[in-house]
Deep mutational scan, measured.
Amino acid sequence: QVALSRTQVCGILREELFQGDAFHQSDTHIFIIMGASGDLAKKKIYPTIWWLFRDGLLPENTFIVGYARSRLTVADIRKQSEPFFKATPEEKLKLEDFFARNSYVAGQYDDAASYQRLNSHMNALHLGSQANRLFYLALPPTVYEAVTKNIHESCMSQIGWNRIIVEKPFGRDLQSSDRLSNHISSLFREDQIYRIDHYLGKEMVQNLMVLRFANRIFGPIWNRDNIACVILTFKEPFGTEGRGGYFDEFGIIRDVMQNHLLQMLCLVAMEKPASTNSDDVRDEKVKVLKCISEVQANNVVLGQYVGNPDGEGEATKGYLDDPTVPRGSTTATFAAVVLYVENERWDGVPFILRCGKALNERKAEVRLQFHDVAGDIFHQQCKRNELVIRVQPNEAVYTKMMTKKPGMFFNPEESELDLTYGNRYKNVKLPDAYERLILDVFCGSQMHFVRSDELREAWRIFTPLLHQIELEKPKPIPYIYGSRGPTEADELMKRVGFQYEGTYKWVNPHKL
């Protein structure tokens, strides 16, 4: 086992960053958080920038500027975001240094004079007029057009580079997404736009490419001749908990499936790229999406959770019991969808996408189930092999396979070949997804960000279904809070070829 401390991990990262040409360590950078008073800024962006600063992973002359409508001070920003920093008493001095680099400007999102004030403020910072500028839009999409237009007109660096990070949702359907994309691309070049999907920053999602293309053993079996089906799962054990009003506007397909799960599907299904260059990788992902037809209604199961009468606390409440959810809402909190990649490698292999709230566990994984062994000599005792990439929690890679049961006879039983990170790298604290992705933006690497043509294809696949749901308002199937979801989803999976045995229990190697 390799035991690495946080300091050692960050030392390795620093070495990698400083050796590259793309990370300008000594240049002045300004990180501007648009929507600095909001939840995302408070819980994710400010803490992430602090962790990067604490670990010495930001360029040395980096300033952080918050911008929002609320009249706040840096002290206010500190008060609301610091509880999420997880700072230790030993880091007190470092924390003071961090907040000394912070400033805040209040202004409207659609007022040109406010942006001119913001620009004057940035120019007044040390070497601010020639600094590289990175704008993070932690804002609702309704203000994107006004904000990007004003940034472009008043706040661009004339000497350094300018980059803009856009948070999902990128529209509600193909038409609104196209409108937003066309607007942003009329102001910024594609190499300046970073559409963030934080799932692409997760260690195991990034590991998929290495697993596939750096190991000879997987190449020959990664196709329709050997793989019976692919299941991509995202499960949350909690409901909307008072935030249903926002969720109800989008629903589970827009929230998770059309982005996170579809991105994971691309990494499983794509061909080997010409290189690890950002556009070479994204070219292959677009090719996969172009091979997927629009979702067919007979390959869809929609569910909505109801309270568990035997549960406790939140578990007793259904989705419609959330006071922020519109009365009688038919918005799905669970969806199972089957897609097919219609190309030579994957023809006929079902890709089953499942996601839901208020389920029995927290889990995100990719599961490849292989065909049955031909010419069975073990009297149907063999179960199908599976390769599982567990994204969260407890990152893991393992192969479910058959071995001989101890004893006199040739009785096979299920076991696993474990390729888990935790076994080799004991207690290594890896940077989280937002840390990686923000560092990628500083480096100018777009590999783990969504390109406009990729986004367009993703919406093309799901828009007809979303429009049909909005028009017909089908009643989702009720499922109990804390269950596996509607049984109809299991029946759909069985119908397209997935075999669920229920006889195997994964042993978490992190707890051995």
Rank of each mutant, 00 (worst) to 15 (best):
D255P: 02
D255F: 03
M257L: 12
Q258I: 04
Q258N: 03
Q258M: 00
Q263I: 03
Q263H: 06
L265W: 00
L265M: 12
L267D: 00
V268F: 07
E271N: 07
P273K: 02
N277I: 10
D279P: 08
V281P: 05
D283A: 04
D283W: 06
K285L: 01
V286Y: 10
K287W: 06
K290H: 10
I292C: 15
Q296A: 14
A297H: 14
L302W: 07
G303F: 04
Q304W: 01
Y305K: 02
Y305L: 02
V306L: 12
N308Y: 09
D310T: 13
E312V: 13
E314V: 11
A315W: 11
T316Y: 13
Y319C: 02
D321H: 07
D322C: 08
G328I: 10
G328Q: 15
T330E: 13
T330M: 14
T330R: 14
T331E: 07
T333S: 10
T333N: 01
A335F: 03
A336E: 15
A336P: 02
V338I: 12
V338G: 09
N343W: 00
E344Y: 06
R345L: 10
W346T: 01
D347P: 05
D347N: 14
I352Q: 00
R354P: 07
C355L: 05
E361P: 01
E361A: 09
R362I: 07
K363A: 05
E365L: 04
L368P: 01
Q369W: 01
A374N: 13
G375Y: 12
D376F: 07
D376P: 11
H379C: 12
H379M: 09
Q380G: 15
C382D: 10
N385T: 01
V388T: 09
V388R: 05
V388W: 03
P393S: 09
N394R: 08
E395L: 08
A396S: 13
A396H: 04
V397Y: 07
K400F: 01
K400I: 06
M402W: 08
T403E: 06
K405G: 07
F409K: 14
F410P: 14
N411T: 14
E413L: 13
E413F: 12
E416D: 15
L417A: 04
N423F: 11
R424Y: 06
Y425A: 06
K426S: 10
K426M: 10
N427I: 07
K429A: 15
L430P: 15
P431C: 09
E435K: 08
L437I: 07
I438W: 03
D440Y: 04
F442T: 13
G444T: 06
Q446Y: 05
M447F: 00
F449I: 04
F449Q: 03
S452M: 04
D453L: 07
W459T: 03
R460A: 07
P464G: 12
L466P: 02
H467Q: 12
I469S: 11
I469R: 04
E470A: 14
E470C: 10
P474L: 13
P478D: 12
P486V: 07
K494A: 14
G497C: 07
F498T: 08
Q499W: 13
Q499H: 10
Q499E: 15
Y500F: 15
Y500D: 03
